[in-house]
Amino acid sequence: MGKITQFDLNVLESISKVLGNTTDGLTGTEIGKLLHECRIDDIDSGNTKWKRLNNALANKQQVDGCANNVIAFIQHALSPARHYDNPEWFNDTRYKINKILSFEGLAIGENGKANYSSKAETISEAASKACKLKEHLLARNVHPDIITFCREELVVDNYFHAVFEATKSVAEKIRMKTGLVSDGAALVDDAFSFREVPHLAFNSLQSESEKNEQKGFMNLLKGLFGTFRNTTAHAPKITWEIEEQDALDILSMVSLVHRRLDKAIEAKKIYEGKI
């Protein structure tokens, strides 16, 4: 990146409050270590964490006449390798930092690197984006469980995580209804196949046509996990971009799956003649 204009002092303060948060921010030791590694003078080490960090970063950008070393510090603090064992903290903190950086036209990617982005002029363009997705899905009358995955923290970059979490919810619902603990294609086979009496059935399973419907829906579930969940779980987001229309279509399909699962019955009751 070229020379980055000095950040507004309010932006610096907000970033410092996130990274130096008393409850879930960096520790004082971590702040000192990171400042040292980034060659930023720790000019106020005796102050509270966020004020200490704010003063150090503000002083550095004033001395430099630019915000490049401030961004370098944020990138260093949010290096994915540093937080490999705490992805929830990484994602949550990056989300908060990006909401602030959006006012400077910047964003930290999942690789921990800064990139230019459209400059925000409102408090939360991410919230607006999430609201737009939710409105479209409500117009489609999707299953209520799907709306859960339109939270702004899930769509702050794109719709990748909303789709990922929604597909995960399908497996979770199957486990809740069956008591099984497997996942993916194995879970589908365990829950619906005819190797033994299925755990769940989508119909009465009396005719060949009904059995074929059960098998067809099994294939749909396996395709859902194989195409979307497994891909999003293992592929970097940059190589698996999901646009709004794709997200709407995928989430609508997941909605259909949820509705069918809600109506699925215990297959053993069919075979015992209780239904």
Rank of each mutant, 00 (worst) to 15 (best):
P80M: 07
S124T: 13
E125A: 13
Y116Q: 09
F217L: 09
V254I: 15
L78N: 11
N10I: 09
I108C: 03
E196A: 11
A186P: 01
I265C: 04
E125Q: 13
K168F: 11
F7Y: 03
L101Y: 10
T93C: 11
L187G: 08
E152I: 05
F164R: 15
L248M: 08
F217S: 07
T23F: 14
E213K: 06
G273F: 03
L106N: 05
I174K: 02
V156L: 04
L34A: 03
N91D: 11
E121C: 13
A247T: 05
E266P: 08
A139S: 08
D190W: 00
Y84H: 06
H136G: 00
A127Q: 05
K237E: 08
L57A: 06
N98K: 13
A120T: 08
L220Y: 07
E153M: 13
W240K: 13
S204N: 15
E125C: 10
F164M: 11
L101C: 13
F194A: 12
K222I: 06
S209A: 10
I275F: 08
G65I: 05
A166M: 02
N59F: 10
G179C: 05
D262V: 05
H199G: 10
I265Y: 01
T23P: 02
Y271Q: 02
G109L: 07
V142A: 03
D41C: 01
R151S: 14
P198K: 11
K3Q: 04
A171G: 15
T239H: 03
E172N: 10
Y84S: 07
L187V: 09
Q62C: 06
L35A: 07
F217V: 04
A186W: 02
E213T: 09
R229L: 13
V197A: 05
T27E: 11
N68S: 14
A72H: 08
H199Q: 14
W240P: 01
N230Q: 14
N98F: 12
E241T: 15
I100T: 09
I40N: 03
E121A: 14
L256Q: 02
F192L: 15
Q206N: 10
E88D: 12
I43V: 14
K268N: 15
V254N: 09
I174G: 00
S14M: 10
N47D: 12
K269D: 14
L57E: 01
D157P: 00
N115I: 09
S182L: 06
Q6A: 15
E135F: 04
N10G: 12
E266Y: 11
K263A: 13
P236A: 03
F225Q: 02
I242K: 02
N59K: 12
H258R: 05
V163S: 06
